[in-house]
């Protein structure tokens, strides 16, 4: 089986410091893969390497095309969306302007459906419709995360990289966020690579999970298996074996 995203021997770093060491990874069509790992394990760098915002070596193939050396802007236009850590909303622009900027990377064939998609997005996130004339900077953390997701969806991506969506959100809000992800996957036929520290919540929506430590994949397994492996979580995710630090639902 060939996946939508095929990564082999990926290396990446900043300046002289290498952060990712020869990493292999596959994401299949319509699959949600959780990337787990402690702070500094390399989750964000992995996502940045894939979206071209960090220089990377090794092989990245997306939908059958090699992405190495392609500019971030071009990668975005090839159907790979990236919701960065901290959301990256344009705070001075209105909510609707933010969402509309997503259209830029849309495949030309789907341009005509942009307005329909905007309605669908507003139906999924009604709060964004209410606030559409407000500056994005006025939104709460959870609303900004929705906005970032909505903006990425407007590009009609085939694969969405999402970096720590639960960061800084209240437990209830972040639980909402994860259930929305499962829904979006169905409605938009998305694949998702989800980097998260919150292993419990993300493994609930993911099909598979990989665990990173010091820039290497140390475990890869179906989500249910990973979720059940308390020893692994204790070793790499900084959870106590009884799982008390995970967000309980």
């Amino acid at each position: 089986m060939t996946g939508l995203l095929e990564v082999t021997g990926l290396t990446a770093g900043y300046g002289g410091v290498r952060v990712l060491h020869s990493m292999d990874l596959t994401v299949a069509e319509n699959e949600i893969v959780a990337v787990l790992g402690a702070n500094g394990a390399g989750k964000t760098t992995l996502l940045r390497a894939l979206s071209g915002t960090v220089k990377a070596g090794g092989g990245i193939s997306f939908a059958g095309r090699a992405l190495n050396g392609t500019s971030a802007a071009r990668i975005a236009r090839s159907g790979l969306g990236h919701v960065p850590q901290g959301r990256g909303t344009f705070t001075a622009l209105t909510v609707e302007e933010n969402v509309r900027l997503g259209v830029i990377s849309r495949p030309a064939s789907t341009r005509a459906q942009a307005d329909g998609d905007l309605d669908r997005i507003y139906d999924t996130f009604p709060v964004l419709r209410e606030m559409r004339r407000r500056p994005a900077g006025a939104l709460s953390g959870g609303q900004q995360q929705m906005l970032a997701l909505a903006r990425a969806l407007m590009a009609r991506p085939r694969l969405l990289l999402i970096d720590e969506p639960s960061l800084g959100l209240a437990p209830l809000t972040s639980a909402d966020m994860f259930s929305v992800l499962a829904r979006l996957r169905e409605e938009w036929s998305l694949s998702v690579l989800l980097a998260e520290q919150n292993a419990r919540a993300s493994l609930k929506v993911a099909d598979r999970g990989i665990v990173l430590a010091r820039g290497r994949v140390v475990a890869a397994a179906p989500a249910a298996e990973l979720a059940a492996d308390a020893g692994l979580r204790a070793a790499y995710l900084g959870e106590s074996p009884d799982g008390l630090t995970g967000v309980s639902s």
Binding site: Y14, V17, N39, G40, Q85
Partner: peptide
């Protein structure tokens, strides 16, 4: 501790 890894170095 190693938070700097997730961001570009100073």
């Amino acid at each position: 501790m190693a938070t700097s890894i997730s961001g570009p170095p100073t």
